[in-house]
Computed example of a mutant assay.
Amino acid sequence: MTDVLVLGGTGWLSGRIAERWADAGASVTCLARGGRPAPYGTTLAPADRDASAPYDQVSGRDWDEVVDISSNPVHVAAAVDALGGRAKHWTYISTVSVYAANDRPGEDESAELLAPLGPDDEADYGRAKAAAEASVRVGLGHRAAVVRPGLIVGPGDPTDRFGYWVGRFALAADGDVLVPPGHGLGAQVIDVDDLADFVAAIGRERWTGVANAVGDPLPLDALLREAATAAGFAGRQRSADAGWLAEHGVAYWMGPRSLPLWLPADMPGFWTRSNAVYRLLGGRLRPIGETLRRTLDDERSRGLDRDRRAGLSRPDELALLAQLA
């Protein structure tokens, strides 16, 4: 039987990866704090990675596969030190945010990376992931795969970014919706279940190397049209330019009072990363309409008018629309 250790395994993506391995008949252990249940068919090994010796209960055996998703480089380095010698293969889930530049379209995995985050540096997500990658490369060498996803989307998304649009179009029904300027902008997303399938597949094959796990580039206005169609939206999309949105305190990309997925115009590289390696390895990219429909079902179950981690509240949006000439 294949023995798999998922460092985490109770979160959104890590839980799906653990499920994929369990469904394939592996013996799966999830090392996590224990605030959430481990997926059905897996075993929880309660541990706090901030505590001393968190890997003691899992470091005394061999593992066919270890999966780590942490963005804390200290945690990743400690895991590699404690478990690297007992792992036949290691998969680290990184991010396309490790790349140093976002102004050059179409770059692949060989593009320059950010300088790794040092112990005394101010927190930075991309540099933290770059530091974690470096620990994996040094400690595991040719036994490791590094997967760099772009924006992960789909049912259960805790960031509230991608689901904002299909959810907002459904909530607005035949009313107006405020959208960012779409010309020359775009998005590159991957369904969480496609990504989980890919991570388990390369683990089974013990593939080593680096792969951008990203979807095909999609113009932002086309994505919004797809979202509106999936939601049965019958109203108007009213676009505001970047200057107007900035003047009215609307942020890019994520977080409160933002228009999610909207990027500055000088970042074409962020949404046009090459996915050639992912495709050559058999990575699936389901149609965006399918992901949108699945996401809408999830949005409805969670409440279309709930407080969100990203986007505008509906009352705030309506107030902005009233000011838009």
Rank of each mutant, 00 (worst) to 15 (best):
L259S: 06
V67P: 02
L13F: 08
A230Q: 12
N102F: 14
T159W: 03
E317C: 07
V147M: 10
L320E: 12
S52H: 13
D298I: 01
N72F: 03
A145L: 03
A78F: 04
G184I: 12
G139E: 07
V250M: 10
S301P: 07
L261Y: 06
W90Q: 06
G15T: 08
S135D: 07
D176T: 12
G289H: 12
A240N: 12
I69L: 15
D120Q: 08
L5K: 03
A265D: 12
V28M: 05
R206T: 11
S14C: 02
T2S: 08
D176Q: 14
D120I: 03
V136I: 09
G175P: 01
Q188K: 07
A231V: 02
D108M: 06
W90R: 05
V179S: 14
G269F: 07
D194F: 09
D174S: 14
G154Q: 05
A173G: 09
S27I: 08
D120N: 05
A87L: 00
E205N: 14
L195R: 01
V4S: 09
H248Q: 13
A201H: 13
Y55I: 04
S59N: 08
G9M: 05
L114A: 14
T229L: 14
Q57M: 11
R148T: 03
G84C: 02
G141D: 01
A242I: 13
W63P: 05
A242K: 09
D241E: 14
G203K: 03
P268W: 14
V147D: 07
G182D: 14
P46C: 04
F198N: 03
P315N: 10
I288D: 00
S239D: 10
V199H: 00
R20D: 08
A144R: 00
S301E: 08
P217Y: 10
T208N: 14
A111C: 03
R20I: 04
R161S: 03
T291W: 01
A82K: 04
R168K: 12
A53I: 02
A26R: 02
A213D: 08
A222L: 15
G215L: 09
A111S: 04
A22I: 04
W253K: 13
V6Y: 06
R293T: 10
S135W: 08
E290K: 07
N72S: 12
G184T: 11
D121F: 04
E122G: 09
A111Q: 05
D48T: 03
V166D: 01
L151H: 11
P54Q: 09
R309V: 01
R104K: 15
A170Y: 10
L324Q: 11
A132Y: 04
V96N: 00
R161K: 05
N275P: 04
R16Q: 06
V138R: 14
L324H: 13
